[in-house]
């Protein structure tokens, strides 16, 4: 399999000759969370998946796509027509063969979501380091129309289950990159009150890093987070009904404040 491990450091703990402990250190300021880091072990049920050196085998799509915006729509059309995929250069890292079937699609994703999914544009969510299962479910929901989106709907319409899983796997294994976003103190106070009332931590966990089905919110772009919550509230987004019910009980500005706060974590 492709040794796709982002920049997380893999350590071997001293142990017995046959037993081996695996630990991954991410941001040392944050507690260790599991789930995403082990997903590729489980999804492939490979007995010995961790045979990599730290940070040396990050899978990257090296073929850069440079495209004038006026051609973007045509590009997207090609993507969703499945025509472009085969002609886009595949990743040149031999270890990334696993992602070859979706390399073209991944390149199209990077047009908006940035290299490796580390979006720098406020309206497009950071995918790099997001939870695998969450990403996979979103692709399924885009395809089915449960999550309506004029761009992602058509883009995902031609994807099969395996492709969606590969795409989700690729982005989830990338390193989350901090945006170093700073928010206002007043927003923090409001946000904490909303978070307490909504018991948000019960699902998104204490550091808002999410797990599996539940997305990471910490450090996500505030504009995207605010839009997402407001879309849930207005029912423009319907693929998580419980979220819609909860967010409908808060004022718009409260949700904007929550977005600001979460982005700063």
């Amino acid at each position: 399999m492709c040794n796709l491990i982002s920049s997380a450091e893999i350590k071997y703990s001293p142990s017995s000759s046959t037993g081996r402990s695996i630990g991954i250190e991410r941001n040392p300021r944050r507690p260790t969370f599991l789930g995403r880091r082990d997903f590729f072990e489980a999804i492939d049920t490979v007995a010995e998946p961790i045979e990599v050196n730290a940070g040396q085998n990050r899978c990257r799509l090296h073929a850069r796509l440079s495209m004038p915006s006026k051609y973007l729509n045509f590009f997207l059309f090609l993507c969703c027509s499945s025509y472009l995929g085969p002609v886009i250069a595949l990743a040149d890292d031999a270890n990334c063969d696993e992602f070859a079937p979706v390399a073209g699609i991944l390149k199209s994703c990077e047009v908006c979501h940035g290299e490796g999914g580390a979006s720098t544009q406020q309206q497009y969510p950071i995918l790099a380091g997001q939870e695998f299962y969450y990403l996979y479910v979103q692709l399924k929901d885009f395809k089915s129309g449960l999550r309506a989106d004029p761009i992602m709907g058509p883009l995902s319409s031609a994807l099969d289950k395996e492709s969606m899983q590969l795409i989700a796997k690729y982005f989830s294994a990338q390193e989350w990159r901090d945006t170093e976003y700073m928010n206002q103190e007043q927003a923090t106070q409001t946000a904490k009150s909303v978070i307490t009332a909504g018991q948000c931590v019960a699902c998104h966990l204490g550091a808002f890093h999410g797990n599996s089905r539940v997305p990471r919110l910490a450090g996500q772009h505030p504009e995207y987070l605010a839009k997402t919550m407001l879309d849930f509230k207005s029912k423009a987004r319907q693929n998580s009904p419980a979220k819609g019910s909860l967010l409908a009980s808060f004022a718009d500005q409260e949700l904007v404040d929550v977005a600001e706060y979460l982005s700063s974590l």
């Binding site: 699902c203 019910s245 409908a248």
Partner: peptide, 25 residues
């Protein structure tokens, strides 16, 4: 808490509360 109800069909394995519970800060 406050108990909120909302008509919600089965969402296929997703969180299915049919509304929301809210703590009162």
């Amino acid at each position: 808490m406050t108990y909120h109800v909302e008509e919600t069909p089965y969402p296929g394995g997703k969180l299915w509360l049919g509304g929301a519970f809210k703590v009162i800060p």
